[in-house]
Design a protein around this nucleic acid. Sequence first.
DNA 1: CAGTACACCGTACTACGTACAGAGTAATTC
DNA 2: GAATTACTCTGTACGTAGTACGGTGTACTG
Lengths: 270, 270
Amino acid sequence: MRQNVPVPLDRSSAGDPARTLELLWRVPAGTPRRGPRKRLDIDAVVAVAIGLADADGLDAVTMRRVAQRLGVVPMTLYTYVPGKAELLDLMLDTAYLRMSRTDTAGRPWRDRLTAVAEENRALFEAHPWAATISTGRPPLGPGMMAKYEHELSALDGLGLHDVEMDAALTFLLTFVQANARSAAEARQVRQDSAMDDEQWWAANAPVLDRVLDPGAYPTAARVGSAAGAAQRAAYSPEHAWEFGLRRVLDGLAALIDGRAGSVETGPGAR
Amino acid sequence: MRQNVPVPLDRSSAGDPARTLELLWRVPAGTPRRGPRKRLDIDAVVAVAIGLADADGLDAVTMRRVAQRLGVVPMTLYTYVPGKAELLDLMLDTAYLRMSRTDTAGRPWRDRLTAVAEENRALFEAHPWAATISTGRPPLGPGMMAKYEHELSALDGLGLHDVEMDAALTFLLTFVQANARSAAEARQVRQDSAMDDEQWWAANAPVLDRVLDPGAYPTAARVGSAAGAAQRAAYSPEHAWEFGLRRVLDGLAALIDGRAGSVETGPGAR
DNA sequence: CAGTACACCGTACTACGTACAGAGTAATTC
DNA sequence: GAATTACTCTGTACGTAGTACGGTGTACTG
């Protein structure tokens, strides 16, 4: 069983950042290669790693398993990738590169930001592991750059300063990622404990009843049971998403709609 | 480098939620103890674990190290705690229990929610590891309950339904935690790579210049350099916090101030 | 006093990332 | 053509983690 466990924020990029960048951008080797031909390439390694992560989560991505899938011994991977941290960078940038990017030019800013949010949500739905990789030092690869450019353009021309544009985007993306992490953690916990929420509550209820001073937590009891009932109606993740996104957009509206300067500024939706 | 918790394939009921709850609430043993006296107690174990985590991060909390600090052999800990996951639950609930809780009754809702946000921010500043523990299944201990009750009461009487109160609180706390996680990740990466942001950028810049098609990412280049300059002014984490919290509150204002029903409903601040 | 439940400990297993040294291969140099 | 050299691939092994298992001695119950 595994209950609350540190969320695995892999990645450290202990190696040389310049080397990592060259890998991300697939900079070809300078001197002609001498020894035996390579039997694999980086893309194959990354593809297998992504496949494992998609299927069984980030924990399933071990150097040993990736190697096995490729028919080589674990240490062979180190001729393609300096270490696991860099492999995770490559996975993430690849996922970024393959995201769908809707062109919303000319549409009201709410539509544009909603599209950005939903593109990211779709990313995390297709690749839940992507939400759990630390982005403390983002992989500055082609995927990341394309993503950043695309998403910033949704905030351009709204009368925000450059620093505000970056802050607003960070704010939006942080919300989406936090939501995706919650979902990933819920999945993880369900899998690790081999117990769904219903069973977990059923196991807890009798002890809680015995231990909890009734009346000590009046608001919590009232709200918690209402929220619990709502969640049992398979309501919860979708609800948190919709509720949160509306708040995020309303929060940005107070900033954006207050600014003069753009024909694209529309009235707050709904 | 971070390690993963092995997932026990068999042994389904090894980690019993009821047992965890009893630990959290310090339910005393039923039958009189027979064998040798205990030389420790749970609180000592938890205190040492928290001390390690505060000082050197969650990675420093290993059963071996905790045991060593207590002058016992690692396996001895298992008489006090079923496993590491439960120890983390206990640490988290203890941190929750010790949080400061300001009484803001009667004050405008923005002040009250700001206080809640700042209490949580202070928690994560004192115990950065607390932000990185999965709350997929929250520890339903005395700390968690007190925290939930306190924070919900800040949202009571504003004309929100119970489900909305829960959603609004989750939204606020998710923001605070996401911020704290970013900070923790930044710290972690700085420590793991033994390289500060300045050095990292310096190492990346030459390769980026060589690899990046100038003009391919116009918005990103403009905004990125503006944001980068702002961050270099030691501006960034504080800025993200202030910017984000204002958006969060403005977003909630659109919900709360639209509701009739409470004298406490004040005009949007700032 | 015998029996027993329990605290504590030593050993060992599995899984991880990866350091290191060796073997074989193909391009370069003579 | 032969020697050199750079490179790929491999086998072994180290250190760290959580914790299963079985043994030993203790202090209470009958």
